[in-house]
C-alpha cells in the first residue's frame, strides 16, 4: 500500500507538473487580458522537442549531455520524497528535508556547470546569476524547513507534514513568517517574475533561460520538464509545510488516498491562481535587487525561527 502511494506520487508529479505550469500560464493570460494558451501547451512543447534532432555545440563535453538527465532525475527523486498525497512513503526514509534541499542544490549545480560548459557569454552569465540566487535561496529554504522541524521535532518531511496536520488546529505565528519567506523563495527558485521572467527572451535579463540556450531537442525537453517538476515540487513542499490537511496518513488508510488526490488538485489550482496573481501584480526586479529580495526572505525565516524559540508558538 505504501509503495502504491509512492509510485502514484511520482507518476502524478511527472504527469501533472506540465499541467500545473499550463494552468499558471492560463491564469496569467486571463489576468493580463490575453487570450490564453491551451492547458496542454506545455505537453505539446515537450513532445515536439523529443522528436527533434539534438544539435550540440562542437566543443560540448559529456558533462553537458549528462546534466539534463541528472537534473531531471533529481527532480523526480525530490517528487518521491515530498508527501504530496500520502505521508507513508517508503523512499522518504532515504532522505529527509535537509537531503531534499541538498538534492535541489545538486540539480542547480549541475545545471550551472552545464551552462558554463560550452563557453558562451550568456551561458556563464546565467550560471553566475543562478548560483547567486541559489546561495541565498537555499539557506532561506533550509531555515523555513527548520522552523517546521522545530515544531514537529523531526527533519523527515512526511513526519513533519503528518504531525502538523494532526496536531495543529490553530496557526503558528512562526509559520506565518516562514510562509511569506517560502513564497519568496519559490518565486526566486522557479525563475518567476519579481526575480526572473519565464517568458523573457531578452538576453541580458535572463537567468534560467540563459542557462538553457545551448540545449535543444530531448535535452531541452528534459530540462523544461524538470523545471515544471521543480515548480510542482516547490508547491508540494509548501502544501506539506503550511496546509498539510487532507493527505493520506497512517490513520486514514487507503481510503484517504481517494480523498487526497482531488484535494491536491484543488490546492494546486488555488496555488496556480495565487502565483499568477503575484506575477501579474509585481514588476521584475533589477538583477542586483534580487539579493535584497532573497535576503529579506532569509531574514523572515530566521525571524520565524526566533519567534518559535522565544515564544514557543
Amino acid at each position: 500500500m505504501a509503495w502504491l502511494t509512492q509510485i502514484l506520487e511520482v507518476l502524478a508529479a511527472l504527469v501533472a507538473a506540465p499541467l500545473f505550469l499550463g494552468w499558471v500560464n492560463k491564469c496569467r493570460a486571463w489576468l493580463q487580458n490575453r487570450s490564453a494558451p491551451s492547458l496542454l501547451q506545455p505537453y505539446r512543447g515537450i513532445r515536439k522537442l523529443f522528436f527533434k534532432d539534438a544539435v550540440i555545440a562542437e566543443n560540448a563535453s559529456p558533462l553537458f549531455r549528462l546534466a539534463p538527465y541528472v537534473v531531471f532525475g533529481a527532480m523526480v527523486l525530490a517528487a518521491a520524497i515530498i508527501p504530496s498525497m500520502g505521508t507513508r512513503l517508503p523512499f522518504s526514509s532515504a532522505a529527509d528535508a535537509i537531503a531534499l534541499v541538498g538534492l535541489l542544490a545538486t540539480a542547480r549545480v549541475f545545471q550551472s556547470l552545464a551552462a558554463m560548459d560550452v563557453g558562451t557569454a550568456f551561458g556563464s552569465l546565467g550560471a553566475r546569476r543562478e548560483m547567486m540566487i541559489g546561495f541565498l535561496a537555499e539557506p532561506a529554504l533550509l531555515m523555513v524547513i527548520f522552523v517546521a522541524s522545530l515544531i514537529s521535532a523531526t527533519t523527515a518531511l512526511p513526519v513533519i507534514s503528518e504531525r502538523l496536520a494532526v496536531q495543529s488546529v490553530g496557526l503558528y505565528p512562526s509559520l506565518a513568517f516562514t510562509a511569506v519567506a517560502f513564497t519568496m523563495v519559490l518565486l526566486a527558485e522557479n525563475a518567476r517574475i519579481p526575480v526572473d521572467n519565464p517568458a523573457t527572451h531578452l538576453e541580458l535579463t535572463m537567468i534560467h533561460e540563459a542557462m538553457l540556450l545551448e540545449y535543444s531537442a530531448r535535452h531541452l525537453a528534459l530540462m523544461e520538464w524538470a523545471a515544471a517538476l521543480k515548480l510542482f515540487n516547490y508547491a508540494c513542499i509548501g502544501f506539506a509545510l503550511f496546509v498539510p490537511w487532507g493527505v493520506s496518513t497512517t490513520a486514514t488508510g487507503p481510503a484517504g488516498l481517494l480523498f487526497a488526490i482531488p484535494l491536491l488538485a484543488a490546492k494546486l489550482a488555488v496555488a496556480g491562481v495565487g502565483l499568477a496573481l503575484i506575477e501579474t501584480l509585481s514588476a521584475k526586479l533589477r538583477v542586483f535587487r534580487a539579493p535584497e529580495f532573497l535576503a529579506t526572505a532569509f531574514l523572515l525565516a530566521v525571524l520565524g525561527l526566533l519567534v518559535r524559540l522565544l515564544l514557543g508558538s
Binding site: F50, F51, D53, A54, V55, I56, A57, E58, N59, A60, V118, G119, T120, A121, F122, G123, L213, E214, S216, R218
Partner: peptide, 12 residues
C-alpha cells in the same frame, strides 16, 4: 523517440 545527435557551432 531517437538518439540522434548533430554537432554544430554554439548557438549563443
Amino acid at each position: 523517440f531517437h538518439r540522434r545527435v548533430r554537432r554544430g557551432a554554439p548557438w549563443d
